[in-house]
Structures are given as structure tokens and as C-alpha cells.
Design a protein around this nucleic acid. Structure first.
Length: 143
RNA sequence: AAAGCUGACCGGUCUGCCGCUGUCCCUUAUGGGGCUGAGGAAAGUCCGGGCGACACAGAGCAUUCCACUUCCUAACGGGAAGCAGUCGGCAACGGCUGAUAAACGCAGAAGAAAACAACCGCCGCAAGGUAAGGGUGAGAAGGCGGGGUAAGAGCCCACCAGGCUUGUGGUGACACAAGUGCUGUGCGUCUUGGAAGUUGCAAGUUCAUGUAUACCGGCGUCAGAGGGCUGCUCGCCUGAGCCGGAGGGUAGAACGCGCGUGGCUGUAAGGCCACGGAGCCUGCCGGCGACGACAGGUCAAGAUUAAUGGCAGACAGGGAAGGUACGUGUACCGACUCUACAGAACCCGGCUUACAGGUCAGCUUUUGUU
RNA sequence: UGGGCUAUGGUGUAAUGGUAACACUGCAGAUUCUGGUCCUGCCUUUCCUGGUUCGAGUCCGGGUAGCCCAG
């Protein structure tokens, strides 16, 4: 991995209505820390590689496109700079991860405050991914 | 100088590191480099047009929209310059309204009465005459004064407001002059002139994947269901399926989608040849063919879970407590603080709304100096 | 992105341009030994803002908020 630690390309975005529907119906595991809520879904490596994310800012709370873009950019910038541990955790276990960032407040946040909250959520998610994989492998061994 | 009015315009710049969209190149399981990348409103979606798809024999009726004049425009409910009225402002100027005095309908409460009139009153012996008075209202027989009269009335006269006729000026809305007793207010209907097929790029075209019209109900196959023309009626066209319930599949990709065309400015505008060429005709070969002049500069994003960013620093432009200098209202310095509204999604022309701050031009009022 | 609709007491709905109405809820009072029923009263800048009109909930501009539809 060269400069890939801080990239965010088309490959890492979650698209396609099928996949998004699956994420919100099957993958109802949530981690939330106001104002951010995560919805995520682990799947087999064959379906898609690595981590794919989607960022949502509700039109109900932000009527202007400028504000919605601002939130998306804040989150995206955070993910770009500090998602390496998560990616390693997922990639090392041959899984794919679909992930949705939902912004849930009705006013804009400062970048610093938002980043600290995001960091907390990401740490919890990384731990959860590791535990999940280990428990599943344990089940396999039992069988 | 201060306050204001009108019109036009700008609305940050640079550096470093990391990153994104599109595209090209080099390497090629990867990566590197070049170029490129939001607005005056991209917004609201309030109008108009292009473009696409579907539809389009015709007649009558209805519906909706527009409405002072002239010009601009592809078109518009847009713009420019005017006309009349009205409101705001000392003024510069700005806002709003504007086809139709025939005919018909309506006008709550208040008020005698909302218009052929009636009632009280006034005059008169009476028959009857009478819109001067009735103070309510947005509106009361055009207003006000004089004459006149039994009392009154455009019944008559002067002035004023409006209408009509004639003349003059203006492309025209109108203006001015003369004549004419023609005259209540508001809204609507009606009338006059003009316009309107439907739907919108999630339009639409192509490809890929995949599936079942299983089942139930209703109507119908020339005495004709259903569909289309259009909102309705007629009429015309089409002619075996159609409608409702309930179900099955897909929801991916490409084109549409943006450097060769369009408009702008200037010059020239006569012919011939060559080339390009929307479209039309045809079974094919092929034929016809509007239009296209030159130069200059301008414009140039094309995503599709949706790019145009993040961090740091410097500069620039305001505002400013306060400080320094001297001729006491000017220079210089200045901690601190501010830098808006807002993000393309098929493309244009307007309108409307949001907007820190700034620039230029013209004009108005007040004050001061010469 | 494009297209469409709505806004009236706390809630659900009415109202031809002419006094904002009805039902339920809530609150206060009255009745009762107490509570319920019953009775009386109260709670509205008709989403905001300009215009037309003598007079707008209604008609016409502009804005705000909410909702719906689509290949």
C-alpha cells in the first residue's frame, strides 16, 4: 500500500440499489454516537472487495445543497485520512464491509468536534469487526 | 463633504502538503505525469423557446391564458422608450393601475332610498309637481356658485372634472382648440382582438440479464368490446381483445451528454467553380437541394449513492477602541475583528428571491469654500 | 433532477368576496358528599408578506413549511 492510506476513489463507494437495500434490511447492526449513526454489513469476499461506504445527509434537516455537501465532505475527509486500521482489519479476514454514515443532527458541526466523534465510532466499529469474525470462525470450528 | 436616487459592474489572490471529476499520454496485476473542473444568482421552478417521444381528415360548442401605445425579440406574463390616472418623496425618482360609458346581473351591515321608483319633507285648495333637504355609506342622480321657479330640476349661465362630435399635431396611446347639457360608484357577465395538442432527459433510443399473464371476476368478436382524434357533441379512423383484482422478472450498461456549431463586433455583400450539406424522392444505381462570405476576439464542467475539497500560512480589501504629528481636522500607525449569499445535473432567453463588502458613471437635496 | 398538491383553535374538518362555523380534547366555573354525565364560558394575528377591492380565510404576486409522484 503506497499512498493508498489517504485515498478515496470510486472503488470505495457503495453504489447500486440492490446492495444498499441489503445493507439496510439485513445489516441492521448499528453503532451511534450523536450526531453520527453507522449501519454496517459484513459479507463474503467474493461479493465485493474491501470496504465500501455511503454517506447520507438528510434533506429534511438541510434544505440547502451547500450544507449537505459540507457534511459529506467533512465525513469523507475524515474517512480518507483515518480509515487505514479498519481497512486492514477487514482485508486481513477476507471479508467485505458495506458501511453507511448517517448524519442525524439538524445543524452543522465544527470539523474538529465532528472528527473526534467519528474517531470514537470508528474505533468501536473496528473492534466489532474483529470480534464478529472471531466468533464466526469459532462457530465454524464447533461444527 | 453628508444624505439619497438611477444605471452598470466586481464579489478575493498566492504558496505548501494530502485528495477528488473528466480526459490524454507513458508504463502495464500496479503506478506516474500533463491538461481540465460552478454562479450572478448555478437557487425558486414563476413564464417562454429549443430538443425528444406520442398524437395530428374535419365541423360546432365550451374552457384557460394575455390585454394603455410603439418598438425589440425565436418566443414570453420579458425588456426599452413613451401616454393617462393615482400613491409616496423637499427633490432626483420610484411603486401600482389601465381593451370594452351599448346591454344585462349583483351590491352584506348601515341608510328613506344602492336607481323606471317608493317614503318623509317641500309646493299646491286639489289633481298633481318635485332629486333642494333626510348624514348612512366606499358610492346618493357630476361638483360649486348665480339666475330662475308655486316649490324645484343642466331648466338657463359662468368656472371646474369627464364623455361624444369636428379640426389640428403625433406612427400611436394621447394632447390642444371649438362645439355639444351628454354625465352616480364598484365588481362581474357579455363583447372585441390574440394565443393554447399532450408530456417531459427518471423525455427517449439501444444492448444485456431475467420471467408466467399461473389464477379469479366483468364486457365483447361485424346488431362489434375497446382504443384514438379533444374537455364535450357530432363525425371520422381503427377492428379482437380490453378492464379490474392478484401475481412473476429486471432495476445493470451505453447513447442522449457538450471544441464545431451558435450568437457578438467589424468589413464586404456581383458571378462562376469546387467542397460540405439539414431534408426530400427512389426497389437499387442515383437525382434534387435551402443554406454555408472573410477577419477578429469570446465561449469551452459533464458527475450519475452524484467530483470541483481539507489543513496550514501569507497577502489584499473593509470596519475599528485607541495612539502619534501639527495649522484642530487632516495625515500616519493601529490591538482586535469581518470577507457574504450560495453548488452545475439536457440546453438557452427572461422574471423573482438571497447576498459581507466594494468600484464606476449620471443626477437630486442640504451645508461649506472660491 | 423533474413534475404536482396542501396549509383555518391542541386534533379532525366547514365557510358564494360581507359577523370565522361544527365535533372532540384541554382549562375555568356551576351542579354533587366526591367523581362522571349534563350546563355555561375560555383557548384563532385563517403559515408569513405585498397588491386588487369599500371590504379578502377566499382573488392575484413573492416567500416559508410540510407532503406526494416518477425509470
Amino acid at each position: 500500500m503506497k499512498t493508498g492510506a489517504n485515498t478515496f476513489s470510486k472503488q470505495e463507494r457503495l453504489c447500486g440499489q440492490k446492495l444498499i437495500d441489503r445493507l439496510f434490511t439485513e445489516g441492521n447492526r448499528q453503532i451511534s454516537a450523536f450526531p453520527i449513526r453507522l449501519v454496517w454489513l459484513l459479507s463474503d469476499y467474493s461479493e465485493f472487495e474491501g470496504v465500501r461506504i455511503l454517506i447520507s445527509a438528510p434533506k429534511r434537516n438541510f434544505h440547502h445543497a451547500v450544507d449537505r455537501n459540507r457534511i459529506k465532505r467533512q465525513i469523507r475527509e475524515f474517512y480518507r485520512t483515518s480509515s487505514a486500521p479498519l481497512k486492514d482489519a477487514v482485508a486481513s479476514r477476507n471479508k467485505g464491509l458495506a458501511l453507511a454514515f448517517l448524519f442525524n443532527d439538524n445543524k452543522l458541526w465544527d470539523t474538529e468536534k465532528l472528527q473526534s466523534r467519528l474517531q470514537a465510532v470508528m474505533d468501536r466499529l473496528t473492534d466489532a469487526v474483529q470480534e464478529d469474525v472471531e466468533s464466526q470462525s469459532g462457530k465454524c470450528q464447533e461444527k
